[in-house]
């Protein structure tokens, strides 16, 4: 019994730590989105470009639920980084979108010359980059966390299996000593 108590207490603590850790890894409002800008097949490096982002409902050609523009400077790799939700709003209210449960596609258009002649860059399902995945896989804490969870979970399994086996043995012994009453001894 003592072992079970220790196991379940530890499991509760782990759940608590895991849920709390998730929270500490949160981002500022919005979703960071990177896109590489090409102009006639050439990577656009260190230039200001205009981007138009739209969140589409359900499918890649679904209704526009939210749209905004960004003006950003590409880095040495030609990548323009923006935070969706913090641009100049064109349509809809980002805060009103239920991104947690809804299915959204993000459409990115760009004008590599900084004007408003937007060309389609990509349309993709909006999925979160798991910060806890980053946290788990980017450093050695992963091994520690996984080992702790695995040990506790295996401990619970082993304890329940062994206790179940012990109970089965005791039940058999009782049935053997009281064949006439057997399994229903308590039914009186």
């Amino acid at each position: 019994m003592k072992m079970l108590r220790v196991c379940v207490k530890s499991l509760g603590l782990i759940f608590l730590l895991l849920t709390a850790q998730n929270g500490w890894a949160r981002d500022a409002e919005g979703a960071t989105y990177d896109v590489q800008i090409l102009d006639s097949g050439q990577v656009v490096i260190g230039k200001e470009v205009n981007l138009r982002v739209a969140l589409l409902s359900q499918t890649a050609d679904g209704a526009v639920m939210y749209a905004e523009t960004h003006r950003v400077t590409t880095n040495d790799g030609g990548v323009a980084r923006m935070v969706i939700g913090s641009g100049k709003s064109l349509e809809g209210d980002f805060d009103q979108l239920d991104l947690a449960t809804g299915v959204y596609f993000v459409r990115v258009e760009a004008d590599p010359r900084g004007g408003e002649n937007y060309q389609l860059v990509s349309v993709a399902r909006l999925l979160s980059v798991s910060r806890i995945q980053q946290w788990l896989f980017a450093n050695e804490k992963l091994n520690t966390v996984i080992v702790i969870i695995a040990v506790i979970w295996v401990g619970i399994i082993v304890y329940l299996l062994l206790t179940g086996k012990r109970v089965s043995k005791l039940e058999s012994e009782l049935r053997a000593t009281q064949p006439e009453a057997g399994d229903s001894r308590l039914k009186k």
Partner: peptide, 15 residues
């Protein structure tokens, strides 16, 4: 812990 989920609103995020 590891499955990639739909984007969450900032208040919830990975929690």
């Amino acid at each position: 812990l590891t499955k990639t989920l739909p984007y969450q609103n900032p208040n919830l995020d990975q929690t």
